[in-house]
């Protein structure tokens, strides 16, 4: 006995389809409103602004969310790492740019390491609170280093070719940055969903104690997730700097919320154990389409934050409601089965 209502949640549980539908709807909506400014070609170009840096942050955030933790210091890590890069390069007067980049990446990983150590050492503190503290700490350090100054004058290949460069693919001008981001996705997907080490993040996030009893080094898993998250945040800071051309201590403010939003939208659950790289990509596209459209209509960053907030609430609610419905159905089915016996 299969009823129609039984099938609907199964369909919507394929979150990827839900996201895909929302992308199409969002695109059509803004395309009707602004037929000249909101086209696929222009949207593709705007991914440079709206997609790449948040995308890298979201990739790291996904890992932390799968563990059931959260890291709201990523934007601050991006700012601090970029600051380190800018300050050590000193507009060409300091270290070679390559070394500055390495230092930037190391800074990101170190910030993640600090977060991770605090999280595994102080289990009674919520990661939310810990990273709230380190967020102000990291941005504070960036401020001490840079004050109100900005660091810039990076090599041309960085601020021009990478920041603004386009590659012509099948007649479409695709930003170089976007290609960098998209190149990461398949590798990340394979690693997270199809290797033993990726599997362990899901296991640990689903039940930390049982995973530990099953032989997984859960502390190592947690630490590595926060470190990778720091690395991705640094990479996000790198691309953010390349498109703006200079570093200030305030860069990326609020991006952590967008990164969390994208990961959750893409299927991660703040209670851990869930998340999908494909979902993340689709959520990222959706958010990009939405942000770009809203900016065109209102040209006000405030409405942008508001809509991201609304979307996040909705998307956190939907899986919860579906989960409740699903649980109710399972129990009801078992009751029927037991009643028969």
């Amino acid at each position: 006995m299969v009823r129609f209502t039984d099938k609907i949640p199964a369909f919507f549980k394929r979150r990827e389809w839900l996201l895909f539908g929302l992308i199409v709807l969002t695109f059509l909506f803004f395309n009707v409103q602004e037929p000249n400014n909101y086209t696929l070609v222009k949207l593709l170009n705007q991914t440079r602004v709206y997609m790449v840096d948040v995308g890298f942050m979201a990739l790291g955030m996904l890992l932390v969310l799968i563990l059931g933790d959260i890291d709201i210091s990523v934007a601050a890590i991006a700012a601090l790492s970029a600051t380190v890069m800018g300050v050590t390069y000193k507009a060409g007067q300091g270290l070679p740019f390559g070394i500055s980049i390495v230092l930037m990446l190391v800074t990101g990983v170190l910030c993640g390491l600090v977060n991770g150590l605090l999280v595994i050492r102080f289990k009674e503190l919520f990661p939310m609170i810990i990273t709230l503290a380190t967020q102000t700490l990291y941005r504070g350090i960036a401020y001490i280093i840079l004050k109100d100054q900005s660091a810039g004058s990076f090599p041309t290949w960085f601020s021009k070719d990478l920041g603004y460069g386009l590659v012509n693919i099948f007649g479409l001008d695709v930003p170089v940055m976007l290609l960098c981001l998209l190149a990461v996705f398949p590798l990340y997907h394979l690693w997270l969903h199809h290797t033993v080490s990726g599997h362990r993040y899901f296991a640990t996030g689903t039940n930390l104690t049982a995973s530990r009893f099953s032989g997984i080094h859960t502390d190592k898993i947690k630490l590595s997730a926060f470190m990778l998250n720091g690395l991705f945040a640094a990479i996000a800071g790198f691309f953010l700097t390349s498109r703006t051309g200079s570093v200030k201590y305030t860069i990326g403010t609020g991006f952590e919320m967008q990164a969390i939003a994208v990961a959750v939208l893409g299927g991660a659950s703040t209670s851990g154990g869930k998340g999908s790289v494909v979902g993340l990509l689709l959520a990222l596209v959706l958010l990009t389409a939405l942000k770009n459209g809203l900016m065109l209509l209102y040209n006000d960053a405030f409405i942008l934050n508001l809509s991201v907030g609304l979307l996040l609430i909705l998307v956190v609610l939907i899986p919860n409601l579906l989960g409740m419905l699903n649980k109710y159905r399972t129990v009801r089915r078992q009751r029927l089965e037991l009643a028969k016996t």
């Binding site: 199809h194 033993v196 049982a210 995973s211 154990g273």
Partner: peptide, 28 residues
């Protein structure tokens, strides 16, 4: 609490401690 990943399937639970032997090449 300590033994099972309740939302996971039976097979994923059973192989959890010995997942390394469930690979072909590098992938699960």
């Amino acid at each position: 609490k300590q033994g099972l990943l309740l939302p996971w399937s039976i097979e994923d639970n059973i192989t959890l401690s010995n997942l390394k032997t469930c690979r072909s090449h590098r992938f699960i």
